[in-house]
Design a protein around this nucleic acid. Sequence first.
DNA 1: GCCATATATTCGATTATTCGAATATGCGAA
DNA 2: TTCGCATATTCGAATAATCGAATATATGGC
Lengths: 134, 134
Amino acid sequence: MRKLVTVMMTHEREHDLYRLQAELCQTLADPTRLEILRLLEHGALPVKALSEATGQRQAKISQHLALLRQRQIVRGERFGAEVRYSLTDPRILDACRITREMLLDQLARQGTLAGMVATTSETVRGGVNTDADL
Amino acid sequence: MRKLVTVMMTHEREHDLYRLQAELCQTLADPTRLEILRLLEHGALPVKALSEATGQRQAKISQHLALLRQRQIVRGERFGAEVRYSLTDPRILDACRITREMLLDQLARQGTLAGMVATTSETVRGGVNTDADL
DNA sequence: GCCATATATTCGATTATTCGAATATGCGAA
DNA sequence: TTCGCATATTCGAATAATCGAATATATGGC
């Protein structure tokens, strides 16, 4: 059985949603947390495994996990002395994959055109700029 | 003609990539910037239009645009007195859509199960928790 | 009860982000 | 040139994020 939930979307709710979405992005805005999420791609892992795989201290990993848990991005389940973490919604990795690929393409472009950069940034009038005087 | 760029990926580069990805997410981690990106979905818009559509002061919009430009998420092109901004890579919206839908689903679940929350959070031993004592 | 292991939390210093206010620049018209 | 509009930038204060260090809690075994 599937449930369909309809949500009334007012303009204020629209802004609340942007706020929540920003909060979600903020939670993704840390290299360690991104690595944790990626490590959880194929299933649950205990803190120790995450700590060893990332090479980061346990306390730091737990701090990041606490944030991810609070924002409901991961969930922890206790098995004896250890707590295994898993993704609440695997779609988070789809979003990460997209940003990752965008970055790789961008790096490839910049790497290829590295020699052109000096020339391109001279374009002054009527040109298209990504970061220049406007 | 299509170019294929192969990138050698060492472990350090892998970490650099996480850092860049985190930086990209950080750039998305602001409600105003998210709204700007969404407004640019159907094409370029001048600053004034963005300022009016969002209801935010022009200086604030320009500040956010400067960040987005610097991170190469948007580009600005001057037409006379105005500067029209557009998305550098439309895939950014795909990523935003995913996080948005994740959030909507999450809200729907929480809204539906609102009455259960008190009960569920009592689960102590061996239970699955998103944010509780572990 | 105690111990060892695994995990969580608190604190404080450092650093980064956001915003409004004020100001500066760029452009076209007269 | 000067004006007026569109956009950009700088500054400073308030707020928030990150990390290491230290400490606290939970669990199972004895």
